[in-house]
């Protein structure tokens, strides 16, 4: 079988209750069911997860590196957006 005939899928795992899903890798599969089965064997055989999400890679829209300046640079000098200027009461500190 040729991998070209199979779509690429991104796999997200949640490792424990209350923790968010994290991207763990990708794999080739014919459809969502197939991706789910393969994800189980490829990414959870050592008990890494209790929940799986699979998403067709082509459905993910990614920011482009040439847009980085426009997207991210303006935040560089907005240090007031960080909550570091506030004094936190001792009682609230963990």
């Amino acid at each position: 079988m040729n991998n070209d005939e199979l779509d690429l899928w991104e796999v997200f795992l949640r490792s424990a209750r209350g923790i968010e899903h994290k991207h763990v890798g990708s794999l080739h599969a014919a459809n969502a069911e197939h991706a789910m089965e393969s994800a189980r064997d490829v990414y959870t055989r050592r008990q890494e997860g209790i929940s799986i999400w699979v998403v067709r890679s082509k459905e993910i829209h990614a920011s482009q590196s040439e847009d980085s300046e426009m997207l991210f640079d303006p935040a560089e000098d907005k240090i007031y957006r960080h909550p570091t200027f506030y004094d936190v009461s001792e009682k609230l500190k963990l």
């Binding site: 079988m1 199979l6 794999l27 080739h28 599969a29 393969s38 064997d41 490829v42």
Partner: peptide
């Protein structure tokens, strides 16, 4: 196996 994912499975 016929391809990597299936080989692992």
């Amino acid at each position: 196996g016929p391809f990597l994912e299936e080989d692992i499975a």
